[in-house]
Design a binder for these strands. Structure first.
Lengths: 121, 121
DNA sequence: AGCAGAAATGGAAATGGTTGTCATTTTCAA
DNA sequence: TTGAAAATGACAACCATTTCCATTTCTGCT
């Protein structure tokens, strides 16, 4: 594991959830852990390829990253105020795995998000 | 409904599934239905706001659109060759609805996609 | 029909996240 | 130490999407 990958992992731990490449870059800058933006992107690519980090998408398409090994869960997001609740998703894991296998797929992953309007909005 | 929105809806029917804004623009060009790219984007924004069209994301973050009212289903996509299989997702509908309600959300929707490597790859 | 104001249109330029390029620096084995 | 290979980062290129703005089309009114 290269030095930059270590730094990026460390930054991901610090933010403790999701972060975009640009956000991680800013976090690293603020902590005298200076590292180029290009290198952050490269490190994230390797980490995703190694399955050390998960890649998701925000609603606007921006890529966001999360440490694997975090309990795998999904999100319930308010379309109005952005409030986010973590949801248990065992049902989904099984559904994805089963559906994939039935069609002869391997190396199966999935994304699932729920959105709506929260009680405060 | 403006003229351009009609054209875009028509193009979406013709492609019969998912299409990006750029793809829809090309489809329209090819069929003497010339219309500016900007207008395609604007029409899609309105249609999404009206809930006439659904907005999803490809894995690379590009926005893709689909007619609402199509039987609601999900997709199993090969990460390697792009082959797509439509999947029945009743389980997911229930899971999304239930999870949302439990947290006091209303107007609940969801996205879910499965991806993997297909048997031909 | 003729007119004014509003809405729609589309080409060009701007934006912003992401990736490619390439010269320089660091690492590491011989 | 030394030379090849990998890593790094500033900068430019890319591409989907949005913004800008001048022009055209629509609409209601007389």
């Amino acid at each position: 594991m290269s030095k930059s990958e270590t730094k990026v992992l460390h930054a991901l731990e610090r933010v403790g959830g999701f972060a975009s490449a640009q956000e991680l870059h800013m976090v690293l800058k603020r902590n005298q852990e200076a590292i180029g933006l290009t290198t952050v992107y490269r490190a994230l690519q390797s980490l995703v390829a190694d399955k050390s980090v998960d890649l998701l998408r925000r609603e606007d398409g921006e890529a966001i990253y999360r440490l694997c090994g975090d309990a795998h869960h999904h999100h319930l997001v308010c379309k109005n105020c952005g409030k986010t609740v973590e949801i248990e998703g065992g049902v989904i894991e099984k559904w994805a795995q089963k559906s994939g296998e039935e069609h002869g797929f391997r190396d199966i992953g999935h994304t699932a998000e729920i959105f709506g309007i929260c009680s405060d909005c």
